[in-house]
Amino acid sequence: MSRIAYVNGQYVRHSDAAVHVEDRGFQFADGVYEVCEVRHGMIVDLTRHLNRLDRSLGELRMAAPMGRAALTFVIREVLRRNRVKNGIFYLQVTRGAARRDHYFPAEGTPPTITITAKSTDPSAAAKKYASGIKVITLPENRWDRVDIKTVGLLPNVLAKQQAKEAGAQDAIFIDRSGIVMEAASSNVWIVTRDGELVTRPAEHGILKGITRTTLIDVAKKLGLKVVEREFKAEEMLAAREVFFTSATGICVPIVQIDNKPVANGHPGTVSSSIRDTFFDVAEKTAI
């Protein structure tokens, strides 16, 4: 069966999906996106993802492509047409197609919206992360508004590639003061020697991850103490556990940082408990 994509009001074959050559997302990275997991026929945390999409659009003064109800219908339809029961959908909105100019295009220029979906194997993902991953650290070099989920991800791409070439799976950005920011596509958490679950505040400097937000609810259910504060690379290296959270990985244990083991070099019990409990707490919307 051919994959189906949604592009500006039409459902088309994935191989035929295209936008205009002067689309501002293509030429200026003038766009935003969301990635959302589908598990056992249920969309995970859809409301929070769409709320964040609205915030990103508002921060960039960009028009919404359609109302919430219509958008939800289209998302479901893309998932149905692609027969996705376990997988993800990717949604992108740009400021539209217009003559190339740094100024915003004329008022009334319609935004561009594309939605794609694909199936994944959850058991394969669980196996992949069972033994944990290796990461490297890199100096922070991104723009100041990483709290907006834009498609301008070149520093993240370069960081991921550098990690791959170093034999690792991801990279963590560290600012000039030695403070841990976030990973190239994930939020970073540590479990201190005292058992506190720590992540940096999401008001500025990192993206407020949806999985991050839901994980705080999960921690409450498990009776874990969550502290939102900054922490430095040295504290991260000395932590009992370190893990990432993201929509596609949920809770991924980190066992090595810059070729140094985290604790005993194996996934810890806190990240395992969180992963096992996450879907009992997360919002689930039927396709």
Rank of each mutant, 00 (worst) to 15 (best):
T150W: 04
E234M: 10
N141T: 14
I206C: 02
E140L: 14
P201L: 06
A163F: 11
I206G: 00
E140Q: 10
E241F: 03
K134I: 02
R145T: 06
K220E: 11
E165G: 08
K260G: 07
G209M: 03
P253R: 05
A238I: 08
I210V: 15
V227F: 04
Q256T: 10
K260M: 14
V151N: 08
K160Y: 11
D147C: 06
V180P: 02
D144H: 09
I174D: 03
A263N: 15
A184Y: 00
H204Q: 09
I206S: 00
T245Y: 00
L138P: 01
L158P: 03
T248M: 13
L222T: 09
V227C: 07
G195V: 10
E234P: 08
P253G: 07
K208R: 09
E228N: 09
T137Y: 06
G178C: 08
V242W: 00
K128T: 12
A168M: 13
V135K: 10
A233V: 14
K220Y: 04
N264F: 06
V227R: 09
N187W: 08
S185V: 05
R142C: 07
A219L: 12
G209S: 06
G223E: 13
T199Y: 07
V146F: 12
L158Q: 08
E235Y: 02
L197M: 13
T211G: 07
G195Y: 12
L222Y: 08
V198S: 10
